[in-house]
């Protein structure tokens, strides 16, 4: 199972790719594997506010419904619209085409609370 070094992680299995005040968010390889076939992803609209630790959407597999939790607070500036027709991208490419939203962070120092790849891997392996 793969956990790229350049990403930060939450205990709820989201990943964050940060650059300056922008943070791209998705779910980890571990999360997609636990969920199984992803068939529906419900995401906020561009412009919506998300709050660190609060639910910003839902990911559904054939068998289950899971909340998505925001790793950082801020405004949603981009949403991966391709997931509406191709939710399976979350399984196939969780760190790439399976990305979910991009947040303009209110406070990039919130990133410091997140887990490193090694810390996250230790929790799920």
């Amino acid at each position: 199972m793969e956990f790229p070094q350049d990403l930060k992680y939450t205990e709820e299995h989201e990943w964050v790719r940060a650059s300056r005040d922008l943070a791209v968010v998705g779910i980890t390889d571990y999360a997609q594997s636990e969920l199984g076939d992803v068939v529906y992803v419900e995401l906020p609209a561009v412009g919506a506010r998300v709050k660190k630790g609060a639910s910003f959407g839902v990911v559904e597999s054939v068998k289950s419904v899971s909340d998505l939790f925001a790793p950082v607070s801020g405004e949603v500036v981009r949403v991966n619209g391709a997931l509406a027709d191709h939710p399976e991208k979350v399984n196939e490419d969780p760190y790439g085409e399976g990305w979910m939203i991009e947040i303009r962070m209110d406070d990039p120092s919130e990133l410091e609370d997140l887990l490193s790849a090694a810390e996250y891997a230790a929790r799920v392996e």
């Binding site: 199984g36 076939d37 068939v39 054939v62 068998k63």
Partner: peptide, 8 residues
Amino acid sequence: PVQYTSVV
């Protein structure tokens, strides 16, 4: 067993 590879 709930699944081996993928339910789909």
